[in-house]
Design a protein around this nucleic acid. Structure first.
Lengths: 207, 207
DNA sequence: TAGATTGTTAATCGATTAACAATC
DNA sequence: TAGATTGTTAATCGATTAACAATC
């Protein structure tokens, strides 16, 4: 089949995990892999991997499996990370700083290009070569740098307001590190990272 | 019904999100809430919330809904965060440092009590009052401090080895920030945080 | 060829939703 | 009481898995 819209979101969510495993295999010089090998590495069934990929096209060969480099490239294109997305970070505290310093974005399709904070003492500070801007500059900077993707790393009290400003400035995908559900228009993507949610999920099973 | 084992993992995974919303409502002085209000805040159906909670007991009253403080306390107990879990952090780079500085753990049931790194120049350094220990001290420290929960904040090349050492030292829940799937025995919980996975999930829907 | 593995179909399994009696 | 909302059942919907013909 392939390529139509109507792909289940849960399938889309697994593609980045497949891509990550394929990158690793590339680094390990594997030329070919199979749905079985991939499934074993990721702890999911080979049938699920074949089914997931079948939504987007036919990428393998009977008998030999998948060419790692080829499948990697195909998934990069499907996820639109065959390019570099400029990103904004809002919040220059400890977390914002760590995000800006992280070297794992660029090899996977993203680059932090601007950082904002509303505390006067943080404005002007330089983080990994990027000068922290005041919130007043948000719209102007984002439009100048064509930023559609942003990360929120501010205290929870400020998160909704920041989200509103980002949407206003044209951002269409937000990764929110503040521990709060934010509301955005239906055409804006939101994802959440809250370590405590994961920790509490695990402690359910402990003792 | 309530309280048996056989709760779907997907249901367990939503409880921390419910708990987070209830904390916020507590802070907002809401005394009562309903499955409708909660669902609206979280963007899920009221039926799902009632169904999820029904796995654990009966917490509401017809006509009036749920007492926020009571439901909050019940979910805290279900998730075993009606106590404080001591945690270890492995990796004292930018990310590890940000994790140790994060003040959001303690109010939600967790406290970082030790930090490890294998780089000699980082050992001995103090982060938020905690002295960085060498990896050789891992087993000894974890057992002395009764640590069952750990976070991995090391480069991906080191993550599997660190995970092995943590398991060896008695850790039963691991939150892995390294962008790699790690293997652990079946009785050890693992959760992953990889911001790029979330970003790539969103860029699928962009442009 | 013989062995392996794909892509796909149909069956199974599980999760979500709608509806409503019970009752505060 | 009248209105609201629960907990639960049954129906619906969707996701996963098993199986296999096709074929490299």
């Amino acid at each position: 089949m392939g390529n139509s819209r109507n792909i289940p979101d849960i399938v889309v969510g697994r593609l980045p995990v497949y891509l990550r495993a394929l990158s690793l295999m590339l680094a390990e010089q594997c030329e070919y892999t199979s749905s079985h090998e991939l499934g074993e590495r990721l702890g999911i069934s080979s049938a699920q991997i074949r089914k997931d990929l079948s939504h987007f096209g036919e990428f393998g060969k009977q008998g030999t499996g998948y060419n790692v480099a080829f499948l990697h490239e195909q998934i990069r294109q499907i996820l639109h990370v065959d390019r570099e997305w400029p990103m904004a970070v809002v919040g220059a505290g400890d977390l914002g700083r760590a995000i800006v310093h992280y070297r794992g974005f660029v090899p996977r399709g993203f680059r932090v290009v601007c950082v904002f904070d509303n505390k006067p003492e943080r404005v002007g500070e330089e983080i990994a070569g990027i000068v922290v801007q005041p919130m007043e500059k948000l719209a102007e900077e984002l439009s100048a740098k064509n930023v559609q993707v942003a990360m929120i790393a501010v205290p929870l009290e400020a998160a909704q307001d920041v989200a509103d400003q980002l949407v206003q400035a044209g951002v269409r995908a937000i990764l929110n590190y503040a521990p709060i559900n934010i509301s955005v228009p239906p055409d804006v993507q939101v994802q959440y990272i809250d370590p405590v949610v994961h920790l509490q999920h695990m402690t359910f099973y402990l003792k």
